[in-house]
């Protein structure tokens, strides 16, 4: 009986809606980009967005993270209308391009740490636990040796990993990635996709990722898009195709993954 209850509550939890788009449209000035999109993402889904340049993928993501307001339609995050949504620390977002000044005086460590600063922690000091989380995120992305460098001195791919570490440090429930592997060499890219898949399969994380890598998207999410909206195709791997989520501490297990990859135990 108890077991049954637990299972029920688990499947309940595992199928709550993470993102709901209802009739969402967007136009820059007069130029319509997104037209009446309806789409929903369930907990632990992996959604891949594919589409030609200018299709509106970035625009769609920017609406979902609240940086753009839809011209019409409504968005819900974790069941709440986006206007009332406050738990932004649940969301990790890696934007398509970071146009910061290359001379900006900030170390990689400072940038990664800044992922912890959110509305709920306005007056909180940085604690020992925060620093540990930061070191773990740096380690998981293999940039601990670069931690003291100025962010502008890193290569494009290294910067991308720093921004991914910043998105991961909060243990996010939803990871939104806009072309995360652009400018990364193919070997690192492979490792990156491995990492993403591992995170998806073993952790309670929902993914929304834009990519031009058809091969990766198709091999993991299936040949056929689940839905098309204008020029954007949505590929989806549903949570019920996965085993139960087992691990909870993300950075800790990323560290284990990294060690096992280094020892050559895990194939891609």
């Amino acid at each position: 009986m108890l077991q049954k209850l637990q299972q029920d509550s688990k499947s309940l939890v595992c199928h709550r809606s993470i993102i709901e788009l209802e009739n969402v449209s967007f136009a820059y000035k007069q130029k319509p980009v997104i037209n009446h999109v309806n789409f929903s993402v369930q907990e632990r889904d992996f959604v891949g967005l594919i589409g030609s340049n200018g299709a509106g993928k970035t625009t769609l993501l920017r609406m979902i993270v609240g940086l753009l307001e839809p011209t019409s339609g409504s968005i819900k995050l974790f069941g709440e209308p986006i206007e009332q949504f406050r738990s932004w620390n649940l969301i990790g977002y890696v934007p398509q391009k970071n146009s910061f000044n290359p001379l900006f005086p900030a170390t990689v460590r400072e940038v990664v740490m800044s992922g912890l600063f959110s509305r709920n922690k306005l007056f909180r000091r940085v604690t020992k636990a925060d620093s540990i989380k930061c070191e773990e995120a740096l380690h998981a992305m293999k940039i601990e040796d670069l931690a003291g460098k100025r962010i502008g001195e890193l290569s494009g791919g290294q910067q991308q990993r720093a921004f991914l570490a910043r998105a991961l440090i909060n243990n996010p429930a939803l990871l939104i990635l806009d072309e995360p592997t652009v400018g990364i060499d193919s070997e690192t890219q492979e490792g990156f996709f491995h990492l993403i898949k591992h995170m998806h399969q073993h952790h309670n994380i929902t993914f929304l990722m834009v990519s031009h890598d058809m091969e990766m998207i198709r091999s993991y999410l299936g040949e056929q898009p689940k839905q098309e909206a204008g020029k954007i195709k949505f590929y989806v791997k549903h949570s019920h195709d996965l085993e139960d989520c087992v691990e909870t501490n993300l950075t800790h297990s990323l560290r284990e993954l990294r060690h096992s990859m280094e020892r050559g135990k895990v194939g891609v």
Partner: peptide
């Protein structure tokens, strides 16, 4: 100052 978009996404006013 580093990344206004990220600040907004973190829910900072």
């Amino acid at each position: 100052t580093f990344d206004e978009d990220a600040a907004a996404v973190s829910g900072l006013p």
